[in-house]
Structures are given as structure tokens and as C-alpha cells.
């Protein structure tokens, strides 16, 4: 029973973190139609920024400032947002493929920096000394408290995204997505609006990274592998429903359930020495799942439901 509760808490915490990331992607792709294929970069930058600001002790890398966790969250959002600003400035007035390619590039370079710059990030050995009031999940009731905090952060992020979506600002984003030339003809500066949406989405992803950091208490470049940190989030958003904030969160919970569930299945069916093959099978399954969703239900489980002008 206790094991089941612990599993439930762990599951909801991770699904909640992915929910935050999926909301961030929804702002970029769902609202405005921008293809960010480098989620891992913003996720990682958020995670490391928060780790650097909040970590304690004499560390062999950056950090040791010992600021409270809330400052870490703010730092994560600011640094990810600034990075997004520069990436966006270069690519957002070009066609969407360029943003996709540039974002993959940013993710790759961030990964190289995390791996190679030991003096800054701890390199492949990872970043230690991360504090936070709730970092130790094996110590008392902290896991439950942390889960509640993740849900609160997710709730706030959802509330803000929903407000943004329904606001005139969100309407302009949808107009740009549907017909950029028409939006510009209406006097909207599409580059500026896109940039705002890209920065906001990336800041939310950075926040997701910070929440993740204080949950695991340890981060290394491996955690920000493009598969888990980019691809899974795309599948979540598309499965849940691009453009729908509820869908983004629902998709995160379902796909995280599928991803954890397949781990359970492969580990119980396959013998122990085939564990790595099991992992590949799971990736294969998620890849096929994405194709199936794109082919059969591209609008996702909860299709976008934009407010109609007469109902406002």
C-alpha cells in the first residue's frame, strides 16, 4: 500500500512537471504555431539556473549561492526567457523550419556546454549540492509536500496560460498562426507578438526545469537528452490537443502514464538482461504512437476550442 502511494506521488510529481513543460510548448506551438524542437535546451537552462542560484556548500562548479527556491524559479524563467529572446530574434521572421533547425542547434550547444564546462556545470558528473526545502523525497513527508507544490505551480501556470489564450493578446497569436499576412494587414507587429509568445513559452519551460531540479536534487546532462526532454513533450501536446491548455496538461498525464506503464510492462515481460532492449522498444512504441495520433486524430483528445467573438 505504502509502495503504491509512493508510486502515485512520484507519478503525479513527474506528470505535473511535464504538464508545465507541455503548457510552455502549447504557448509556442498551440497559440502561435512556432516549432520549437529544442525544448531540452530551455528545460536544461532552467534547471541549471535554479541549481546554480539555490545550491549550497563549497562546490567544484558554479553555485553555492544558497538563495531560496522561489528565487531559483525566477532565475530559471529569466535566463530561459533571455535565451529564447535571442533565438527568436534571429529565426522568428523566417519560415518555421528555420526555427526548428535553430532550436535543435541551441539544444545541441547547451548539451555540449553542460557536458564539457565542468567548472560551470559539473560536466558529465552532474551538478551536486542542490538544495530546496523539498529536495529529499526519501526523508519524511517531503515528497507529498513537493507534489502539492508542483500541482500549485502547474495550476498557476495553467491559469495564466488560459488567461493569455483568451485575452486579445491570445487572439492576435491565433491570427498570426492562421494567417500572418492578414494579421499584419490589421496592423499587428507579428514579429513582436511571436517573440513575446516564444519568450513566454520558453520561460515556462525554464520553470519546469527548475521544478524538476528541486525534485530530483541532482541533475546531469543525461537528464536533458532530446528524447525525454523534447520528443516526449511534443507527443504529450499533440496527443492532448495543441492549442488547448487543458489538453496540454491531459496529454502530459496520459503520455507520462503510457511511458511509465510501458516501462512496467517491458521490465516485467523481458528478462533482466534485456532491460536496454526494453527501453528501445518503449521509444519505438512512443514514436509509432505519435504517427498514429497525427494520422488519425491530429487535433488531439481535447481539440482547440477558441472563444467565439459573439460569446465573449
Amino acid at each position: 500500500m505504502e509502495g503504491l502511494i509512493n508510486f502515485g506521488i512520484l507519478f503525479l510529481t513527474m506528470a505535473g512537471i511535464y504538464g508545465i513543460l507541455s503548457l510552455g510548448l502549447n504557448v509556442q506551438w498551440g497559440f502561435t504555431g512556432m516549432l520549437n524542437v529544442g525544448i531540452a535546451a530551455f528545460f536544461a537552462v532552467g534547471a541549471y539556473s535554479s541549481a546554480i542560484v539555490t545550491s549550497v556548500g563549497d562546490l567544484p562548479h558554479w553555485g553555492g549561492i544558497g538563495a531560496p527556491m522561489i528565487i531559483g524559479f525566477a532565475a530559471a524563467m529569466i535566463v530561459s526567457g533571455i535565451m529564447a529572446f535571442f533565438v527568436g530574434l534571429i529565426t522568428l521572421n523566417l519560415r518555421s523550419d528555420y526555427l526548428a533547425i535553430a532550436s535543435i542547434g541551441i539544444a545541441e550547444i547547451i548539451r555540449l556546454v553542460l557536458k564539457n564546462e565542468e567548472w560551470m556545470t559539473g560536466g558529465v558528473n552532474g551538478f551536486t549540492g542542490i538544495s530546496g526545502k523539498f529536495n529529499n523525497i526519501f526523508d519524511g513527508g517531503h515528497a507529498l509536500l513537493y507534489m502539492i507544490m508542483v500541482m500549485v505551480v502547474l495550476g498557476i501556470a495553467y491559469f495564466l496560460c488560459e488567461r493569455a489564450y483568451k485575452s486579445p493578446w491570445g487572439r492576435v497569436q491565433r491570427a498570426i498562426r492562421e494567417n500572418e499576412i492578414a494579421a499584419r494587414a490589421m496592423g499587428k507587429n507579428s514579429l513582436s507578438f511571436r517573440l513575446q509568445s516564444f519568450v513566454l513559452g520558453s520561460a515556462i519551460m525554464g520553470l519546469g526545469g527548475a521544478v524538476y531540479t528541486h525534485f530530483t536534487g541532482f541533475i546531469s546532462p543525461e537528464a536533458f537528452d532530446p528524447l525525454l526532454a523534447t520528443f516526449l513533450i511534443w507527443v504529450m501536446l499533440i496527443a492532448g490537443g495543441s492549442g488547448n491548455n487543458k489538453g496540454a496538461i491531459l496529454g502530459a498525464f496520459i503520455i507520462w502514464g503510457v511511458w511509465s506503464g510501458t516501462e512496467f510492462i517491458t521490465s516485467s515481460i523481458l528478462p533482466a538482461d534485456m532491460a536496454t532492449q526494453g527501453a528501445y522498444l518503449r521509444v519505438l512504441f512512443i514514436g509509432i504512437l505519435l504517427q498514429a495520433i497525427l494520422l488519425t486524430r491530429p487535433q488531439g483528445l481535447l481539440p482547440e476550442n477558441a472563444p467565439q467573438p459573439d460569446k465573449d
Partner: peptide, 24 residues
């Protein structure tokens, strides 16, 4: 007949399908 960006997302998924097959 879809927006080409859907193809891009699909090809991203295909990349992972191919790689996991190679690894298997």
C-alpha cells in the same frame, strides 16, 4: 495536403523510430 510543419513533426518521430529500431 497538410501543413508541411506536420510533416516535420512526423519526421522527428520517424527519426526516433528508426533509431530505436537500429538499437534493437
Amino acid at each position: 495536403n497538410s501543413d508541411p510543419v506536420i510533416l516535420l513533426i512526423s519526421s522527428f518521430g520517424m527519426a526516433l523510430i528508426l533509431r530505436s529500431l537500429i538499437q534493437l
